[in-house]
């Protein structure tokens, strides 16, 4: 049975638009890999530095930006210090936006409670550089201020990734989670947690099982779970219902296609 694909597009559009307009709220179950990230952050003492690497661009904003924002909110709520960076050039604006929003909410000061390092090309090499000598790799922050003079660096005595207990990588590809596991976590010994797009999540379960990742957030659902954990429902939680209904529409069309296949087969059998 052939259906004009424009009908499928219309159904998908309806499944996305209506729940968005009527803001259908759904209960969100928490999965263990997401809970583990939350627990690891909860276990850190106030003042500890957490590195958040944002390795994505605006194409993955819908799934990954809510993760960045939720993680930053959690860190600031716990009075942790955040060192944010990008390994992708086009993600810098999103990180700055998330730092501005979450920083203002929790009255955090740039240079004291958080530092934005910006983008540096090189991927894995940048990670090795940070592991060997942070100030050598990033002598200045994204605004051009010397890193060595910042209270966050002075007060914590941060020299390299060896002094950091937790790195959280939110990534949409390479350089990303693999780079942080191979060049970072395995060499410098910090705990690594990760967030990624839904389609990538399956790739990282071996790291989760081996303990190379302490936790994993997969796709918009992962972000919504984290928002639920920090009791701060936002974009990801709101977008769960359009995603739910669009998945249902896809499943309905798949079932419809298979019913048509069975009917066709039985007709052929009868004819023969």
């Amino acid at each position: 049975m052939k259906i004009d694909r424009r009908y499928i597009f219309v159904f998908i559009a309806i499944a996305i638009i209506l729940p968005t307009i009527f803001e259908v709220r759904m209960k969100i179950d928490i999965s263990e890999p997401v809970k583990k990230i939350f627990d690891r952050i909860e276990s850190l003492k106030p003042g500890t530095v957490v590195v958040i690497s944002n390795d994505y661009d605006p194409a993955a904003k819908a799934e990954l930006y809510p993760m960045t924002l939720a993680i930053m909110r959690h860190c600031f709520r716990k009075n942790l210090r955040v060192l944010a960076l990008n390994l992708w050039p086009q993600g810098a604006g999103l990180v700055r936006m998330a730092l501005d929003i979450s920083g203002k909410e929790y009255k955090k000061e740039n240079g004291v409670d958080y530092v934005f390092l910006g983008y540096k090309p090189g991927g894995g090499v940048v990670i090795i550089g940070m592991g060997q000598n942070l100030l050598g790799t990033f002598p200045k922050d994204a605004d051009g201020k010397p890193l060595a003079e910042m209270p966050l660096i002075k007060e914590t005595g941060l020299k390299s990734l060896k002094d950091v207990p937790l790195v959280i990588d939110i990534a949409a590809g390479t350089p990303g989670i693999d780079s942080w596991v191979i060049y970072g976590r395995d060499q410098y010994g910090f705990d690594l947690a990760a967030g990624c797009t839904g389609v990538m999540a399956t790739d990282y379960y071996p790291y989760l099982n081996s303990g190379q990742l302490v936790g994993l957030m997969g796709g918009l659902k992962g972000a919504a779970e984290y928002e639920t954990l920090i009791e701060r429902a936002d974009e990801a939680t709101r977008n769960m219902s359009p995603q739910s209904f669009s998945h249902l529409v896809i499943i309905a069309f798949v079932i419809l296609g298979n019913i048509a296949l069975i009917v066709e087969k039985s007709k052929k059998k009868r004819r023969s």
Partner: peptide
């Protein structure tokens, strides 16, 4: 940002059609 996000969003429609 809107251009890249729009391009990626189109996947929802093509994935639905391809899945069918």
């Amino acid at each position: 940002m809107p251009m890249q996000a729009s391009m990626f969003s189109l996947l929802a429609f093509f994935v639905a059609s391809a899945a069918y």
